[in-house]
Design a protein around this nucleic acid. Structure first.
Length: 347
DNA sequence: AAGTCGGGGGA
DNA sequence: TCCCCAGACTT
């Protein structure tokens, strides 16, 4: 079957404008999958160094499966959405246990892997096995919404169904992998979210958003509810040997399986006196000095939470019972809020 | 169907 | 400041 004019033009644009990215120079489904997990909700420039680190540390899916989760999380540190890293590791183990170490390339089996949803299964199966599956990511939503002037919300159920069918109708079944990569690259480089370069676009004569002057209003997306505020008081203990104490964050919630200093979450900003009261009733270590590291709360913004963090330095009288040497902190995966503090704090 | 899960960067 | 980024999972 002949590709649609849309696909032909997109692929022609792709031939001239595609970036040279490392995961485009391989057919190894393990590497393709790894790149797709890293790139979920993540810009290429941000994900690129992480991809290289993972390939260097774990050249094969067996290497990844045999690692400790903590190693994987340390490598993932700073990239966010840490469930991706936990699921990545679990999926690698599944490949060994359920697929005899052979990474699947078909949609149905890919979808069984933890962390692999419709997008990633479509991407890997179309790239590696030329399976006729249409990808639907933020780029594709934007390109299709504009080119066909569709105002269904991309984060509504009717919108998802409509765009999925449209993407499938447009797919070049003979070259689904190239088609999918082309439309995503087109969205990333040409049909950008803000101020797209429509004057220099090969589709500008047939684009319905341009025709109706609605390019800057598409795609339509329902707004997220505003973030909630949280107040984190980190108790940074230092004993006479310059050892400190950290603990693993258990689920549910943010930063599962990452480490942090002992945390007191309060329902408002706290002053020194209130911290002293808290310490006297909740912390058994005797401290010889208490000081506040940051005068104003450090604001750390996540998608759905705004964290107001204060670091309290506690000089402890006796050696800590479960000590961590300060210089060993980098062996533990931690959120950026804490690695920034550790970087700034000099003993 | 709505909420949750990070962090960074562009305008 | 707001929005988006090669989405997936839970409730």
């Amino acid at each position: 079957m002949r590709p649609t004019p849309f696909s032909t033009q997109i692929q022609s644009w792709y031939d001239k404008n595609k970036r040279d990215l490392p995961w485009r120079n391989t057919n190894d489904p393990y590497k393709i999958w790894l790149s797709e997990i890293i790139l979920q909700q993540t810009r290429v420039v941000q994900g690129l160094p992480y991809y290289q680190k993972f390939i260097d540390s774990f050249p094969t899916v067996s290497d990844l499966a045999n690692a400790q989760e903590q190693e994987v999380l340390v490598l993932w540190q700073g990239l966010g959405y840490y469930s991706r890293a936990r699921n990545l590791h679990a999926a690698a183990k599944m490949v060994l246990s359920e697929f005899d170490g052979v990474f699947p390339t078909d949609y149905q089996n890919l979808k069984k892997l933890k962390g692999v949803g419709d997008y990633t299964a479509s991407a890997v199966s179309s790239f590696c096995a030329q399976e006729p599956q249409a990808v639907l990511d933020g780029n594709v939503f934007r390109v299709l919404a504009r080119y066909f002037n569709i105002d269904l919300a991309i984060n509504s159920t009717p919108g998802q169904k409509y765009f999925k069918q449209l993407a499938l109708d447009l797919l070049d079944k003979d070259q689904p992998g190239k088609h999918n990569q082309a439309i995503m690259e087109f969205g990333a480089l040409q049909c950008t979210p803000k101020s797209p370069d429509c004057n220099n676009c090969p589709l500008n004569t047939s684009c319905l958003a341009i025709k109706h002057g609605k390019t800057d209003q598409l795609p339509v997306k329902h707004k997220a509810k505003p973030a909630r505020m949280r107040f984190f008081n980190y108790l940074v203990k230092l004993d006479p040997d310059n050892n400190t104490q950290i603990q693993k964050r258990e689920g549910p919630g943010i930063w599962q399986n990452l480490y942090e200093f002992p945390l007191w979450e309060s329902d408002a900003a706290i002053d020194t006196h209130e911290v002293e009261t808290y310490l006297n009733t909740h912390v058994t270590d005797k401290f010889v000095n208490l000081s506040r590291f940051n005068d104003k709360p450090k604001i750390h913004k996540l998608s759905h939470q705004h964290l107001y963090a204060t670091f309290w330095i506690l000089e402890i009288e006796k050696p800590i019972t479960d000590p961590i040497a300060w210089q060993d902190l980098d062996k533990y995966p931690m959120p950026v809020l804490l690695t920034d503090f550790i970087k700034a704090f000099k003993i």
